[in-house]
Design a protein around this nucleic acid. Structure first.
Length: 584
RNA sequence: GCUCCCGUAGCUCAGCUGGAUAGAGCAACGGAUUUCUAAUCCGUAGGUCGCAGGUUCGAGUCCUGCCGGGAGUGCCA
């Protein structure tokens, strides 16, 4: 149990002794104090429950304090209008450190409810290279899947690549007319992108060409052998390119079940929806309409036009009898339930697709699926002028270029200050630090806020960045490496005296309180915030408290702090998908 | 028009079921290194939390209205 949980348990016992019972007890909470001047943890339960108990808050707090048994953990004080403040005793922190040393999970409890979760993230279109717009889904999805696994959920990651959509009509059209074999062999991704751009720009200017592209797509989807052959080659080449990026990012998928995998199920999905009465023909297309239940303002199949609520159906078969992503997504849910036995599906996708997912989830429920469905939306990438980066031909920086820039910045910033001699090792470090900086930058933002693309800041290696955490880890490891004799690091006889030691212990103890809340609202930035605070505490400790030259219980205690800081930092970074170097 | 999101220090952003004197980083300024990695530490300065009401013992956080920005809104994904 974490300190917060222990204190809450004791405090509830205190409230029970004061006659509080039933549901009211659920409202007795203990949280980390907003300000350390007030202590380590605080509870506002006395103020919350005072009215029901017909007492004034301070009086209630006082009687609870008098019967709460927590002397082994903390000193309790009453402050302000009725806060109960807990100041954890150094000995209690020391005890906690001892427990963490014995615990491979470093004080993080496994989740009580274990789910079978399918996580759908990254999902780039093939035949187009990944650009900065793919960063958020890829990095956030990967971090969330790592955290979910660590907390004991059964996780299946699936890269639902866009390998069956409109862009293939264009690529095939241009392939047949414009393909340069030599270019394809030397730089396949660039050639595929060129083909796409040629067709895209020409079909914008010329309706005939657009129609031809559309027909190429229909032919492909109906199984035309020539088009299928081109398609297969495109997918193979693109996938090789994508794998290179994922290797650099250290992102792995259990499956790559792209849109094309569901082609065979689409007709059946539409037929079953029509048969069950959920879908019907309208204006030549097949659509799902509102079931008319509930408030139209909350109905994803309704939209307000002027004074009336009009239908806003979900189109599952277009008037040209082609299928779209709505159909594919429905089929994909079926598949995930049937094949993976999923009871929860996470979609880490841009918030602009919010309406689509509301409709999709509603359809899934009306078809009888009872799995939980979550759209983990994130904000838009903005330019420095505050407006969204637009997809005008080639405007978005390529992901590979961004990574290269960050690695280059890491290389330059290691110049003259790195302790690593070998150039080869320094190159590997620059990769680790540069890629880590990009990931950390991404993960430290609140998921839903918009994201200003600022290359300089992205590749910055100072301040609240991955290298700051990596450097703290390196400093821990450096001390532990220099330790010449065998030292048994356990919880016996630890002494925490200096403020910096106590604060570091406090931060270490909070690891178990932090990791689980990341999944409460899919918020990796809560973990980045925590790790920064931990690293700050360590850097301060490092300056004030010499370790190796100290003696006795002090030395042992400081070594334990170094060891645990190293373990927590490494584990925390691993949950974010960031590597921790031994030296830098 | 309707639905959803956002507005916090010069800049980029945190702020966890409402809690005490709103916090970091960058940029600026001033200090710290014969001592375990200075990609570090310590300090100074910087705010009408878009505006106005409301609920509450208490509001950056919840509600209403307004201003400003963005996104989505039947055959793209």
């Amino acid at each position: 149990m974490t300190l917060a949980e222990l204190l809450r348990e004791r405090l509830r016992a205190g409230f029970i002794a004061c006659g509080i019972e039933g549901e009211a007890l659920e409202r007795v909470g203990v949280t980390q104090a907003a300000d350390l001047r007030f202590g380590d943890y605080q509870s506002n339960a006395a103020m919350v429950l005072a009215k029901a108990a017909k007492k004034n808050p301070r009086a209630l707090a006082e009687s609870v304090m008098n019967v709460t048994e927590a002397a082994d953990l903390a000193e309790i004080e009453i402050a302000g209008p009725g806060f109960l403040n807990f100041r954890v005793k150094p000995a209690a922190f020391a005890g906690r450190l001892g427990e963490m040393l014995e615990d491979g999970r470093l004080g993080v409890a496994s989740s009580e409810d274990r789910f079978r979760i399918v996580i759908d993230f990254s999902a780039p279109n093939v035949a187009k290279p990944m650009h900065v717009g793919h960063l958020r889904s890829t990095i956030i999805g990967d971090a969330l899947s790592r955290v979910a696994r660590f907390l004991g959920h059964h996780v299946v990651t699936d890269n639902h690549i866009g390998d069956w959509g409109t862009q293939f009509g264009m690529v095939i059209w241009a392939w047949k007319r414009e393909l340069k074999r030599e270019a394809l062999e030397s730089d396949p991704l660039a050639e595929l992108l060129r083909l796409y751009r040629v067709a895209n720009s020409q079909s914008k200017e010329d309706d005939t060409i657009r129609e031809e592209c559309r027909r190429e797509l229909v032919a492909l989807q109906q199984g035309d052998p020539g088009n299928l052959e081109i398609w297969e080659e495109c997918v193979r080449l693109s996938r090789n390119g994508l794998e290179r990026i994922y290797d650099r990012l250290k992102v792995r998928f259990d499956h790559w079940l792209g849109e094309s995998c569901y082609n065979g199920r689409l007709a059946g999905v539409v037929a079953s929806l029509m048969k069950s009465g959920l879908a019907r023909e309208s204006q030549g297309a097949v659509c799902v309409f509102s079931d008319g239940a509930g408030d139209p303002a909350q109905d994803p199949f309704k939209i307000r036009k002027g004074d009336e609520w009009e239908d806003k159906p979900m189109i599952i078969r277009k008037s040209d009898r082609g299928y779209n992503y709505a159909t594919t997504d429905i089929a994909t849910i079926d598949y995930r339930v049937e094949e993976f036995d999923a009871d929860w599906a996470w979609y880490v996708v841009d918030h602009r697709q919010g309406d689509h997912f509301k409709q999709l989830f509603a359809v899934a429920r009306r078809r009888g699926h009872d799995l939980a469905l979550s759209h983990i939306a994130f904000g838009t990438i903005l330019g420095k002028d505050g407006t969204p980066l637009k997809t005008r031909a080639g405007d978005l920086p390529l992901l590979s270029d961004l990574l290269n820039d960050a690695v280059e910045a890491a290389w330059e910033s290691s110049e003259g200050r790195s302790r690593v001699e070998s150039e080869e090792e320094r190159r590997a470090l620059a990769e680790m630090i540069g890629v880590g900086a990009i990931k950390f930058m991404e993960l430290s933002h609140h998921r839903t806020s918009d994201y200003v693309f600022d290359l300089e800041k992205m590749v910055s290696m100072d301040g609240d960045t991955a290298p700051y955490l990596q450097n703290a880890y390196v400093r821990c490891r450096s001390i532990l490496r220099k330790l010449e004799e065998e030292v048994t690091l356990d919880g016996d006889g630890l002494e925490l005296g200096a403020d910096e030691e106590i604060h570091l212990a406090r931060m270490l103890a909070r690891f178990g309180e932090t990791v689980p809340v990341v999944l409460d609202d899919f918020r990796p930035n809560l973990l980045t915030n925590y790790l920064l605070e931990l690293a700050r505490a360590y850097h301060s400790f490092f300056h004030v408290c010499p370790v190796l030259i100290s003696e006795g219980a002090v030395r042992k205690s400081r070594l334990v702090l170094c060891e645990l800081t190293a373990r927590v930092l490494r584990q925390g970074l691993e949950l974010l998908g960031i590597e921790a170097p031994e030296r830098m």
